[in-house]
Design a protein around this nucleic acid. Sequence first.
DNA 1: CTGTTAGCGCGTTCAT
DNA 2: ATGAACGCGCTAACAG
Lengths: 338, 338
Amino acid sequence: MNWGKAMEKKTQKHGKSVVKMRDVAALANVSIATVSRYLNGNLDRMSADTADRVADAIDKLNYVPNSAARQMVKKSSGLVAVVAGNIDDFFSTEMFKGINAMLESKGYIGVLFDSNSDLDREKHLMQIVSNQYFDGAILQPYNTVQVIRETIKRPMPIVMADREIEQSPWPQVVTNNYEVARQATQYYKDKGFKRVIMITSSLSMAANRRDRYYGIQSVINNIDVLEVSEKSYNHKKVLEQLTTLINGSQEDTLIFALKERWLTEFIPRLFYMGLIDNDHVAVTGFSDTGTAQYIDAKTKLIAQNPYLIGASSGEIMLNMLEGKHRDPEKIVVPAKFG
Amino acid sequence: MNWGKAMEKKTQKHGKSVVKMRDVAALANVSIATVSRYLNGNLDRMSADTADRVADAIDKLNYVPNSAARQMVKKSSGLVAVVAGNIDDFFSTEMFKGINAMLESKGYIGVLFDSNSDLDREKHLMQIVSNQYFDGAILQPYNTVQVIRETIKRPMPIVMADREIEQSPWPQVVTNNYEVARQATQYYKDKGFKRVIMITSSLSMAANRRDRYYGIQSVINNIDVLEVSEKSYNHKKVLEQLTTLINGSQEDTLIFALKERWLTEFIPRLFYMGLIDNDHVAVTGFSDTGTAQYIDAKTKLIAQNPYLIGASSGEIMLNMLEGKHRDPEKIVVPAKFG
DNA sequence: CTGTTAGCGCGTTCAT
DNA sequence: ATGAACGCGCTAACAG
């Protein structure tokens, strides 16, 4: 029997490498403790010479530490899970960038999961996050507090981003949806607009959208709601509906898109068709990317600050990770109209 | 000295819970081996009764397995790292969705990292991916093969997505950038267009853009290139440049955007200004989200299929994970014009 | 400055 | 059908 290759232990499932700390130690003529110290930056606890030898050995053997083993004893992976609502949204991805900017300043790193606007999938992801070795989780969830509690069984630092929840047991970072919608609407009301056509996805889903609706309503309650399905819709039909709605009243009308996508997909055509004149018919809406601002120079929009929301969430997470326990406070990152 | 709380062992860095397999075993009156079997689905190796007792105990204690310990012995985490070029791009996020669709069918799960179009950051992320316990990595990299090799020291399955590289040691999944750009250009040439204004980010960055350029050039070589900075640019100035370029020639001109963003940000205005008539001045370009198709009914665009590219990458990864070693083949997922 | 050693929590033979 | 015991690779006392 050939024991040569057969005996070769594998440290990775894929690959031939076996090299572990003891190999490095052997080659460098030191104990594994010394190697460990070197790896963890305790260079003051060894002579420069040994350090060099260890470094050489590591390099020569192409040694890479086994993170699972390290995590098991350190009880930390340095990884923070971020579960976003839908990564196709600029809001989510930009928030993630903000989160990472903060986390990385302290050596942590965020990894992104995509719940794809699906309640069950989100729950599934939270389970995985709970089962894997993440030091914390930043959530932008659709599920309720109760479901989240039941799903994430392991005690771990949690921050809720972009979701306002009553009685949240975790800190949350949110936007002033109600206020800014109100402010924008007021601006147009002052200019004589008396009616709103609101374009939105299904209202039931997110509390955010509901807040925006209430914000508008608190100023102008003559609102026509046009619901468009996120998944699939007939572009032409929506345009017709919009046209009909616009022409259906003598009042000066404000078209209010709760999501940037509706702005970029429908509004340019309305401009082109001459239906929007900024005088009797104007447009506004939430616009995170800034793309929509180029539709027309006179259009004023609402810009959220997903990056800052992420950064704030990341900062709170860092505090929790470092044991400075914070209360489940609520931080409001205001959106801006103008 | 108070040994009460002080002696409490913690299994998580944050949280009071200590419950581990032996606790479950104790409560269920079985050995930890049995619990382990239960957890790993070896239900045929125990009586239904014991299984129930174990299940109860797990539930009662709210036990969650320590994934680090499990990974250490199983040499697998079930996690696949995806390093995307820029998650603000629909292409990247949609590709990620495609990847996950495949991976999840076999119980794996993809996690997303964002290199933010930054070479150094990408390298840093690859290091992390290499050091952490991921079963494989799907890369959409800007770095060269050599850098990647040096950075990811640990032998692990790797797939290159959306990046065409000569002599790649890893399988790759790409788009027919050259061909489809050529095809689109040909279409307009046949209609009498003799000149192209190409809008792009910096050409040097990605091979993809270069291929597109060559594709156009192979049909029409009268090309004016307008470079726009991804990070920041003056919208008004770009519009002026475009206007000047358009008016700078008597030839029928095709405006060709290498990226959807330039389509949605500049073209609607040009339409509105009457500069585009689809007759002497037409527009085309790469458009992944489909948003741009509503700019004008007559506009024909190029649609890539990031989801499918992701799915293919995921499938290849699965094969590699299951040991069916594939050659570093190249799969082409064609983009469509029309 | 450096080495020895006892765990970390779980999977897995090998017995029974 | 079930348990005892070893080992995965590394860190952190402790010892010297």
